[in-house]
């Protein structure tokens, strides 16, 4: 997403706008949800940091939309547009999310399922955004991709270009659907609810965790784009290589069988690579969710 924000920033810049783009760094590592911001204006930009009331929100991984912790829906009102890279239709999302924001969908490339398309999601998202904004020409977009991805091999740059242009074309019907939000009024604004920070002694206010294992509340399973699935009929009950070598400790052995904790599996797929009888396969999260929905449909 950092790359996406930079391409979009450069594209705006190439069109003569003043620009800010910035990734938001957290402690999370590769695979964890990450977000980035772009601001553009005709005049110098004085606002900084997190955008609390966005005009356009682009979601590259639709599994994050419904997760409150990911904060996708924050600040979305009737003014905003939400663009989701997804298999699911815009209508379904609009219903599911019950949001006043306009929801649009950039259809997922099928090849996403084997990670091959993953590197190009950024370019596609930016291509779509450029058309929605109506302020960036295809030329400026391509130039921005060339500039920002100049460290990549020529074929990779080309694929990025192609994906961006495809997405740009796909959004033709929604061209120019995003309007710049008026800035906050100093005459009529929502007063911040400041409090006097109460004094709390160090037994309470020291940065100490007085417990163990609280990290299990962090659902790192959200990071996953690929899901390891155990085919139990092929499992040969070895010395639990999957469990022993899982870097994230999410495979336990219960009743003489390995069990994956999907709340916390980050989808590194070390188990898939290491399982001697190849009893663990990898499927995309999108596919996994799709089949879960289908199964649910069959049972109801």
């Amino acid at each position: 997403m950092k790359t996406a924000s930079r391409i979009l920033g450069s594209a705006f810049f190439n069109e003569g706008y003043e620009v800010q783009d910035a990734p938001r760094y957290g402690a999370e590592r590769r695979g964890a949800p990450i977000f980035a911001f772009v601001r553009a204006d005709n005049k110098a930009i004085d606002e900084r940091g997190v955008i609390t009331h966005p005009d356009l929100v682009i979601v590259a991984d639709d599994s994050l939309v419904t997760v409150p912790a990911a904060g996708v829906m924050q600040g979305l009102d009737e003014h905003a547009v939400l663009l989701i890279n997804s298999h699911v239709s815009a209508e379904t999302w609009q219903q599911r999310l019950n949001t006043k924001a306009q929801v649009l969908v950039l259809p997922i490339k099928d090849a996403m399922q084997n990670r091959a398309e993953l590197p190009y999601v950024s370019a596609a998202c930016v291509g779509a955004a450029a058309r929605l904004l109506g302020m960036i020409s295809q030329n400026a977009l391509v130039r921005a991709i060339d500039e920002e991805l100049s460290h990549l091999a020529a074929d990779k740059i080309n694929t990025n270009r192609t994906r961006a242009i495809e997405a740009f074309e796909l959004m033709t019907t929604h061209e120019n659907c995003i309007q710049q939000r008026p800035s906050v009024s100093a005459l009529d604004y929502q007063q911040p609810e400041w409090v006097e920070l109460p004094f709390e002694d160090a037994r309470i206010s020291a940065p100490t965790i007085h417990a163990s294992l609280t990290s299990v509340e962090v659902k790192t399973g959200l990071w996953r784009t690929m899901r390891p699935v155990i085919e139990y009929d092929r499992c040969n009950h070895c010395w639990w290589i999957c469990s022993s070598t899982c870097p994230h400790n999410v495979i336990s052995v219960e009743d003489n069988s390995p069990v994956i904790d999907y709340d916390h599996c980050v989808g590194c797929l070390v188990c898939v690579a290491q399982c001697p009888p190849h009893a663990i396969k990898a499927i995309s999260e999108a596919e996994a969710k799709q089949s879960a929905v289908e199964q649910a449909g069959e049972t109801t």
């Binding site: 957290g26 402690a27 920070l197 004094f199 709390e200 206010s205 020291a206 940065p207 100490t208 965790i209």
Partner: peptide
């Protein structure tokens, strides 16, 4: 007990420092 642990973001940081 985990003591002196890291925080993320200005809000918890502000709390601990101001306390």
């Amino acid at each position: 007990a985990s003591q002196a642990v890291a925080v993320l973001g200005g809000s918890p940081y502000s709390y601990f420092r101001y306390e």
